[in-house]
Design a protein around this nucleic acid. Structure first.
Length: 674
RNA sequence: GCCCGGGUAGCUCAGUUGGUCAGAGCAGGCGCCUUGUAAGCGUCAGGUCGUCGGUUCGAAUCCGACCCCGGGCUCCA
């Protein structure tokens, strides 16, 4: 009997008896690894531990420490979920059950249109634990189409997959379920549970167990609303108890940060039923923060080479016919209004208006690039089920700009635009970015090849010179141009897509835009759509969650609350407040009609950055006691002037850039000069 | 829009099988307390139990429709 030699990720190689499996290899390396091993990869392909290795292959042992290991673990847990459901609901059928980020789901159809209730999860989870405790092996099998169809005779969704796959037209979605060579693989465990699956799986159900079922949801088969609605169960699964616990803790933290909860608690924004879904009103404190955000945005655009414009909220249908929105975006638009024999639509986008401004006169290449900026409110008819607080609403305000430039100017414009974008986002405390470059779709698209290449290369080099991590979504661009999307990662690691920089080769054509070039001839400009925050409302919601409501000093609606120890300190407290207000701060006094501890607590709960306590000593010496958010404890006997200076510095560094009149940083400068 | 789950005081929630079940805590008003760093005491007020209709001697509770909210699907800033 000959041996086989394989290579390991560290470059070493190992020789094992012929027919050795992944499990043999792990055991050969060490008992700890043997215990932790879930699957192996052989030349990059995942494979069950009990399958023989190939001589000469590059083999890697996969454990729950890696994404691939977790993926396998979750996938196997999804199988156990399906097994439990099929046990408990005779006649139920299972559709698909893939691993997803942090967990897995499985879609089912219950007999007679039955549905799961939240209570069912408990019973299902208990059955799953029994299956796991009985440590059933996952056995891999292969079958031809006919055999597989017989095996899954009672499972119409599995049959549909088998038919699709064995017919050889496997698409990406189906590729995860079966091979495309006329045979399919399936896994069997326990008494009779079988599932169509390419695997790999953990060796046996006993390797699972750190999971939790989370929720029930409806989901269309293949995500298509014309297909039947299936019952989906979501769960999460991890390699050990600690990781599961940590994940559940993160979810709880995220819930505490929910901007809808914070918006109500902090009296920032509300959604009165009478307004309709996705339509918010801004209360004074929320409006104040929003105004600071908008003021900062305006300031940056003023000094960044942009021209400010305004446009109406509605326009006649001809504008939307020319722009093409009525052709490809009608579903997202509010319905039309008929008046004076004309048809008007609320605007879902600002671009046609900005194009109209560009069109209003003859443009020379000397005028370009022309950057038109507007905090433009738009209305989109989002599906009622899609509306989600400020993060997805039906009326929102874009920090929108349309840049018109010559093709030659495109690369430089994109590079400076991306830098500008990142700089604005950094000012709000975001410093972890992930970008996506979306290139020309393979199907129909408009624009010359040279233009696409110029723009795509321009976007790529902008990303590279900005030193930004990015992924390429090949063919993911719109039909009218390539784009960059920028995600930020928030304080608890969640990504949010905020910025988008989008080339448009279509609208200039549709509106027949022209400029006069140096050669005296007429040329078509290139148009760039871009939004940095995306939507002000959404950006506000993301910021609120990022900071968990504890806005940095320059954005905090109430920056300082002054608490007199007793009534006799009221006058001094008011003088402290007046000094703060004169210095441009937002400060209030909370009089001594409640015990100090209670007032301190109220201020802390309200997330006021600085709570000042003033008593006899302070009134006598012109000092304050500063209980700052995040500090270990109060700092007593701080001279008022020192506090004013310290706060001013914090406001200035928070804003990063000197602001316009009305911006905290500007008042700071005035305050210091005087 | 579709599936599931919810709407009880400003907020968070109790209200077993339909019959003093319209309640609690916090918040709010008033009074007392005069406080040195995360909840002092007392007292008062508040709700057409999402809306409309139905079943019943009787409905927060059962049924139907609708509205709104939440989680998904889909979509997306």
């Amino acid at each position: 009997m000959s041996d086989l030699t394989i290579s390991l990720p560290d470059g070493s190689s190992r020789t094992l008896p012929e027919g050795a499996t992944g499990a043999d290899l792990a055991a050969d390396i060490g008992p700890g690894l043997a215990k932790a091993a879930l699957i192996v990869t052989v030349d990059g392909e995942g494979r069950d531990l009990d399958r023989a290795l190939d001589a000469g292959a590059a083999v890697s042992i996969v454990t729950a420490d890696s994404d691939e290991g977790l993926h396998t673990l979750r996938h196997s847990t999804a199988h156990v979920l399906a097994q439990a459901v099929l046990d408990l609901w005779p006649g139920a059928t299972h559709a698909i059950g893939p691993p997803i980020e942090h967990g897995f789901y499985y879609d089912f159809e219950l007999p007679d249109g039955g549905v799961f209730s939240a209570d069912d999860l408990e019973a299902i989870e208990a059955r799953m634990r029994e299956i796991i405790a009985s440590d059933q092996a996952f056995e891999r099998h292969e079958a031809g189409a006919a055999e597989a169809l017989e095996l899954f005779a009672d499972h119409c969704y599995k049959r549909e997959i088998i038919e699709k796959v064995t017919a050889g037209d496997a698409d990406a979605e189906m590729a995860g379920e079966a091979g495309a060579d006329g045979t399919v693989t399936y896994y069997r465990n326990g008494d009779g549970f079988v599932d169509l699956c390419t695997g790999p799986h953990v060796p046996s159900t006993g390797r699972l167990g750190h999971f939790a079922l989370q929720k029930v949801a409806g989901a269309y088969w293949r995500g298509d609303e014309k297909q039947p609605m299936l019952q989906r169960i979501y769960g999460t699964a991890w390699g050990d108890k600690k990781a599961l616990k940590a994940h559940l803790h993160r979810l709880a933290e995220a819930e505490k940060r929910d901007h809808r909860r914070l918006a109500a608690e902090m009296d920032l924004v509300s959604w009165p039923d009478a307004l309709g879904p996705g339509l918010a009103v801004w209360h004074p404190k929320g409006a104040l923060v929003r105004k600071l955000i908008e003021d900062y945005s305006r300031h940056r655009h003023e000094t960044g080479g942009y021209d400010f414009v305004y446009s109406p909220h509605i326009a006649k249908s001809v504008l939307w016919e020319t722009s093409g929105h009525l052709d490809f975006y009608a579903d997202g638009m509010y319905p039309p209004m008929e008046l004076d024999g004309a048809t008007y639509y609320p605007k879902p986008m600002n671009c046609p208006f900005h194009v109209s401004i560009f069109q209003s006169g003859q443009r020379s290449y000397r005028d370009l690039p022309r950057r038109l900026f507007e905090l433009g409110a738009v209305y989109r008819y989002e599906l009622s089920g899609a509306v989600h607080g400020l993060l997805r609403s039906r009326g929102f305000t874009q920090d929108d700009s349309h840049i018109f430039c010559t093709p030659d100017q495109v690369p430089d414009e994109l590079a400076s635009l991306l830098e500008f974008t990142l700089s604005v986002l950094r000012a709000f405390g975001f410093d972890d970015f992930q970008a996506k470059l979306s290139t020309r779709p393979t199907e129909k698209s408009v624009g010359e090849d040279a233009l696409w290449d110029l723009a795509t290369d321009g976007l790529r080099s902008a990303l590279e010179s900005a030193g930004l991590d990015y992924v390429v979504d090949e063919g993911g661009g719109a039909f009218y141009g390539p784009k960059i999307d920028v995600d930020v990662t928030d304080a608890i690691g969640r990504p949010w897509q905020l910025s988008t920089i989008q080339l448009d080769f279509n609208l200039p054509e549709r509106f027949e835009l022209e400029y006069v070039g140096a050669d005296g001839g007429r040329h078509r400009p290139v148009m760039i759509h871009r939004a940095l925050m995306g939507s002000i409302e959404r950006f506000f919601g993301v910021l609120l969650e990022h900071y968990a409501g504890a806005f940095p000093v320059w954005l905090a609606p109430e920056q300082v609350r002054v608490l007199p120890v007793a009534d006799e300190h009221q006058a001094y407290a008011e003088s402290v407040r007046d000094a703060l207000v004169a210095d441009g701060r937002r400060a209030t006094v909370d009089p001594a009609d409640e015990p100090l501890g209670k007032r301190v607590r109220a201020a802390k709960v309200a997330k006021v950055p600085h709570v000042l306590v003033v008593g006899d000593d302070d009134a006598a010496n012109g000092t304050v006691g500063d209980n700052a958010r995040g500090a270990d404890g109060p700092e007593r006997d701080l001279p008022l002037d020192d506090f004013l200076g310290r706060l001013a510095a914090a406001v200035e560094s928070g804003a990063l850039v000197a602001g316009p009149a009305g911006h905290p940083a500007e008042k700071l400068a005035e305050g210091r000069a005087s």
